[in-house]
Amino acid sequence: MAEFGAAPGVLLARGVCRALDGLGFVPICEYPVTRGLRVDVLGLGPKGEVWIVECKSSLADFRADQKWQGYLPWCDRFFWAVGPDFPREVLPNGHGLFLADAYGGELLQTGPETRLPAARRKSVTLGVAQAAGRRLHRLTDPQGHP
C-alpha cells in the first residue's frame, strides 16, 4: 500500500535504508557522489565500507536511467533494489540485490567487492558526514543559513 504523496522510488529507498540499518550501515538518500551523479542510497558500513544502492520502482524507471555505471567508481559494492513485482531478469549480472518495499528490505545477493582507493574513501566518507550534518542542521534550524 503506497503512502499518500510519496513517490514509489522514495518508498523503496526507505525500505532499503531500514535494511541497511539492520546490517549495521548508516544510510543517506539522494547523495551526490560527484557533479551530475546523485545516488539513491549510499550506506557507510561499520568497517568503513561504501555501498551504493540504486532503487528501481518499475521497468520503465530502470530503462530510463543509464547513469548507474557512473556510480561504480564511488563504492566498494553496488546493489540494485527492486520491489517484489519487478522483473529481476532484466537487471545486469554481477551486482548485489535487495528486495524491498516501503517497510523494509532483504539482502538477496551480495555482488563482488571492488575496494575504493584510500583517498576516494576518505573523500566520500567526509562528504557524507558533512551532508548529513547539514541536513540535520536544517531540520533543527530551518530559518538558518541555507
Rank of each mutant, 00 (worst) to 15 (best):
P73M: 03
G43H: 12
C17F: 07
Q109Y: 11
P73D: 02
D40A: 11
V90M: 05
L23F: 15
V90F: 09
G144N: 01
F62I: 02
E54S: 07
R115P: 04
L126V: 06
A132I: 07
G133H: 15
E49I: 08
T34F: 11
P73G: 02
L11K: 11
V50I: 10
C75G: 01
W74K: 02
F86D: 02
L37C: 11
H145K: 06
V26N: 11
L126S: 03
S123N: 09
V41F: 13
G127T: 03
G104C: 06
R63N: 10
L59T: 13
A60H: 15
W51I: 07
F79Q: 05
F98W: 10
D40L: 10
P117C: 01
G43V: 09
G127K: 03
L99K: 04
S57Q: 08
D85A: 09
P112M: 08
K56R: 09
D65S: 05
A2S: 10
P112W: 13
R121W: 10
D76P: 02
G15M: 05
G22A: 10
Q66I: 05
C75I: 02
H137L: 04
T110L: 05
P46H: 15
G5D: 07
A100D: 06
A6Y: 15
A129C: 02
A19M: 09
E54N: 07
V82T: 08
G104A: 07
F78M: 02
V128F: 13
A64W: 13
R18P: 01
S57H: 13
F25T: 06
Y103D: 11
M1W: 13
L126P: 00
D141A: 01
W51H: 14
L12K: 09
P46Q: 14
C55D: 05
V124Y: 09
G43L: 10
L139M: 12
